[in-house]
Design a protein around this nucleic acid. Structure first.
Lengths: 293, 293
DNA sequence: CTGCTTCTATAACCTGGTGGCATGGATGTG
DNA sequence: CACATCCATGCCACCAGGTTATAGAAGCAG
């Protein structure tokens, strides 16, 4: 019988979490999708894995047998992926926005000179996965924005802190001010990340700094160009200061904001994985460079 | 990064076989499908796994690393599937045609009385997989028709031998004869299994008994009802004698044939897997009953 | 008892992955 | 020089998997 490792991750998440709803949030998928997948797994195996109830999903005996084996299988696969990367002398780095990556390109160029036999791949991820590919094991390490959901399962090293400002349509009245008070933005329509990103979405809507004032969501997007487009079309969005340097749009302006917490940039890698010395070397170099700011 | 175990089996087959074309036959898929899948695996990993040449596919260093780990992962998964079956007291048997299964139903009924806590699931597979689900690990054991491709990788025990005859349209001139000479059928349009089944297809077209005379394929099908339908519509097809007892169609008749080898029925199970005592017990009972004929 | 909350299940719809067939291109071989 | 044997590509059909919206069941508070 064939399965996708994705399905195994789903199963493991539900087994651990005990509810579909909860697991769905951690996995960045909708609850109905999980319902269907878990049911399909049971159908394929011909064996019930959970007992459903109002309070959630409890493992059956067969489910416990499976749950006992799945983590090792997933780890085994991740290790195999890592091994092919090692064999091919490839290091994969994930990132979300050009701002956070900043001087990383220079570090990589130096690294390349020092270790010409290695290749470094820099992959950009969209905001549907705030872990920049780490959650799914698609990269060896990632430059991330803290905080994000799933962070606890990773090894995260904070690098630096950056003020957040706001992107405004060029014609917006506040676009003339030097600095904007966050309070003035409370009733503006915000660009938000997808609902599946939970706390990450909240953080970029600055839900905590609103003193209970409700959020108006004007657009939902997960990619930088759509994001700028939405602002040009009349929405507003919080953004780290570096955004102003790396992205630009004729009808969008960036203004500092008083009253929102800063954005923290970190370097993340999987927990407790076998260490690849060359990767450590690169990450160390990146950390040194970025922390300096 | 997520993969389907199917993709891993594909990779393992190509790695072992050394050619896409050859592996495709063993896997019962088309060669272009394999080409695409292997390429996708390489793209996902961001690492080339094979070096292509006119003579086939040679593993790269990274490919060897992967090939060294994949079998263990696949075995691990199969074992996990088996474990859930054990925990749920479930035995899965695959079969292809009602004829070969014959008295198995009675054996199962007896077994059920003796071990009421166990459940036996009898699953029918179509001819796109002559191993009746064993190749993909979908069953614990299977009643099969020998020979079939992939047989070497399994533990096969021959049970009995059964003459093959021919299914003819009722209005066919030969339908009046008592026994048909196979030679008389050489130019008839045959119903065949899909090209992906290789030697299995050949065997049921009796390619070896034609003394080089070419085959005329009148229809391709993988399911019993389509198969009978094709015969009713004017094709002919070889079939084991038991077919006459288990399938019937108003416009189709069965006649014995002289000059084709008989069909051998066997009981197959995965090689070198941990033995489940209860499964052994059931298989032993089936073997005893079927061999008696 | 009623309304709210918190679970899972179902329905309708959309998209992209996966496979099949037919065909092309490259490269040794009789 | 034709042929056989590989792998790659283009086009098409289908289904698995996702999303949103909504229903259904069951505790819990007033």
């Amino acid at each position: 019988m064939d399965v996708d490792t994705r399905l195994l991750r789903y199963f493991a998440a539900v087994a651990e979490e005990g509810t579909l709803t909860g697991a769905a949030q951690k996995l960045f998928v909708s609850q109905p999708a999980l319902t269907k997948q878990i049911r399909r797994l049971e159908d394929d195996l011909g064996v019930p894995l959970f007992v459903r109830s109002r309070s959630g999903m409890a493992l059956t005996e067969a489910g416990r047998e499976l749950a006992a084996r799945v983590p090792a299988l997933l780890d085994g696969w991740d290790e195999a992926v890592q091994a092919t990367g090692r064999a091919a002398r490839l290091l994969r780095l994930g990132f979300l926005d050009a701002g956070a990556v900043g001087a990383v390109h220079e570090v990589i160029a130096e690294f390349r000179r020092a270790r010409p036999e290695w290749r470094v791949e820099l992959r950009q991820f969209d905001w549907s996965d705030p872990s920049a590919g780490l959650a799914r094991g698609e990269v060896d390490a990632a430059v991330v924005r803290l905080p994000f959901p799933g962070q606890e399962g990773l090894n995260v090293r904070e690098l630096f802190v950056e003020e957040r400002g706001v992107l405004l349509p060029a014609r917006h009245p506040l676009a003339n001010n030097g600095t904007v008070e966050f309070r003035e933005l409370w009733d503006e329509p915000f660009v938000a990340a997808g609902a599946e990103t939970g706390a990450w979405r909240e953080h970029w809507l600055a839900a905590e700094e609103r003193e209970g004032h409700p959020v108006r969501v004007g657009a939902v997007t997960s990619r930088p160009d759509e994001w700028l487009g939405a602002v040009a079309a009349g929405c507003v969005a919080l953004a780290p200061a570096s955004t102003a340097r790396f992205y630009s749009h004729p009808d969008v302006v960036f203004r500092p904001v008083r009253g929102v917490s800063p954005s923290r940039v970190g370097l993340a890698r999987p927990k407790g994985r076998t260490r690849e010395a060359t990767l450590d070397e690169l990450l160390e170099a990146i950390a040194r460079r970025l922390s300096r700011r």
